[in-house]
Amino acid sequence: MSHSGRRVTWRSTTLLVVAFGAACALVNVMPQGTILEQPFLVDGHVGETLDLDYAELTVTEVRTADTLASSQPAVAAGTFLVIDATWEATEGETYFAGAEVVDSQGRTHWPTSRGGCTEGTGSQPGYAWRTTYCFDVPRDALAGATVRLARGTHVHDDQAGQRRDAVAVVDLGITRQEADELWEATDEIDVDAPGFASATTNADEEGEG
C-alpha cells in the first residue's frame, strides 16, 4: 500500500495553492518599481562637478535662444534652453544616452538634435568632453527647472535604462524673475561642435581665423 505522505491530499494541494498565492502576492507587493529599481540620484547645481561613479559631469552654463544658428538654423516653438556640459568617463568608453529637463510642474522635456545640438554623447577616460544639449521648452517650464543627465536612457517612461544606476539631477538655478528675462531675450546661439573641454578657446580662435 502507498504511504499516506506520497498521495495527493487536500492538505498538500491547499499548501501548494497557498504557496503560489503567497509568491504572487510577494512579487506584486514588493516595491520593485518604487524602491528596488530606483536610480541613485546625485543632486547638484550649475558649475559643480558631480561624481556619478562611471563618469564626472559638470553642467557649465545655461543659456536660452530663440534661434540656433547652424548650417540649418532651428527656430524654437517656445525657447531653446541651451545647456553646456562636460563629461569625463572614469571606467572606459561610455555613452551618455539620458538627457531630459524636468520642470517645476513635473513635466519632462527631451533634447533636440536640431541646430547642431546633441541628444547624447560619448566620452572616455583621460579627458573631459564638452557637449551642448538644447531643449525646446515653454515659458512656464523655465523657473525651477532641473536637468537629468545619465548614461541610462530616458526614452522609456519607466526609466528602465537607469535602474539602480547613478543619475545626475542638476538644478539650473532659474528664478521666476530670471525666467522672464530669459524668455524675453531673443538671442541667437551658434552651438559649438562637441570637443575637448579645455581646447574650447583654441578651437574658437581657429574657427574664427
Binding site: A89, T90, E91, G92, E93, G122, Q124, P125, G126
Partner: peptide, 14 residues
Amino acid sequence: IVLLGDDGARYGEK
C-alpha cells in the same frame, strides 16, 4: 588597443 591604468580605467577603447 587599450591601456589599463592603475586607477582601473580603460584608456583608448574608442
